[in-house]
Design a protein around this nucleic acid. Structure first.
Lengths: 159, 159
DNA sequence: TTATTTTTAGAATAATATTCAATTATTTTA
DNA sequence: TAAAATAATTGAATATTATTCTAAAAATAA
């Protein structure tokens, strides 16, 4: 694929900063804050979306409100050939699996999983992971408490 | 603190599902999709926010657009006493650290860090982690490629 | 069942989104 | 460097949405 050109100036950064903190900030407010016309902001936001700089807008929902109380990280060793990621894509299809990363040095993946509780985790490992061909072994790390969990990026202050 | 009551019906679930997929969906659209009055939806969304079921609205930004190309997970062993999390809070203050989890079985934390590249990671470990009292050791896992990275929760289909 | 509380609809108003033509700024290229 | 071309911004007009509030309906409690 063609290399995308990201060409961001400090106004874009400011927009990104605002949106990252509150994706429902309306155009008019952003325009006021930056001292520009709403139409100009709209234009820029559209461009940020088109260029896939802004990837999506999410509501962050409290997991406990949906009774999803257990967070785990699982290291998975597979027989996937380097460069191929068959198992990874199967893992990625599972809705409880929030993240799948191909990691260095271990012929494996690190996944982040959210389940109801430990029985949900067991179910998932037994019924779903257990049925994926090519998984050689797993090592599970249980999260006792999450102190911070964000996706915010550090946005440059200057141009 | 008092135990919060989450009492969600299937309309709330639908709202959450819509918002989770696109936090900028406007009230009128949600109302149309659910066949309800905009004022009723507004009321419900406000309540979801007040009850801290919706925690925040984020724009997900492409890390490469901000030249943040390296993702790492670091296991950190500390001398933190069980129940106390002094080091954890210091880690959480660092903007490059997106996640801090207290994990079972290792007297330690798992953190997720996004830096420019490997030199940024080295800087961070040397200049920042290196200066935190109470860190006994670290083990770093480098992400080669991310196949999936979302915060979406599984939302019940029925009541 | 009645009383109380919560939720919803509907209408009215305030505010915002969106479009577009004209202007200004920026970049390209001759 | 100047002219030409391109990109970005403004401002005004219109369409759409947000927000507020009251009355009705629905759900819940007594």
């Amino acid at each position: 694929m063609a290399k995308l050109e990201y060409n961001l100036d400090h106004i874009d950064y400011q927009i990104l900063r605002i949106m990252q903190n509150n994706a429902r900030t309306n155009n008019a407010d952003i325009a006021r804050e930056l001292g520009m016309a709403p139409s100009a902001i709209l234009e820029r936001v559209k461009k940020l979306e088109q260029k896939e700089i802004i990837l999506q807008y999410n509501a962050k929902i409290n997991p406990h409100a949906l009774d999803q109380n257990l967070l785990s990280f699982i290291f998975i060793k597979t027989s996937d050939i380097i460069g191929e990621q068959g198992v990874a894509y199967l893992l990625a299809e599972m809705p409880e699996v929030q993240e799948v990363h191909d990691i260095a040095g271990d012929d494996g993946y690190l996944i982040k999983v959210r389940t109801n509780d430990s029985s949900g985790l067991v179910d998932l490992m037994r019924n779903t992971l257990g049925k994926i061909e090519g998984i050689l072994s797993t090592r599970t790390t249980i999260v006792l408490e999450t102190i911070k969990e964000e996706q915010k990026l550090v946005i440059p202050t200057k141009e």
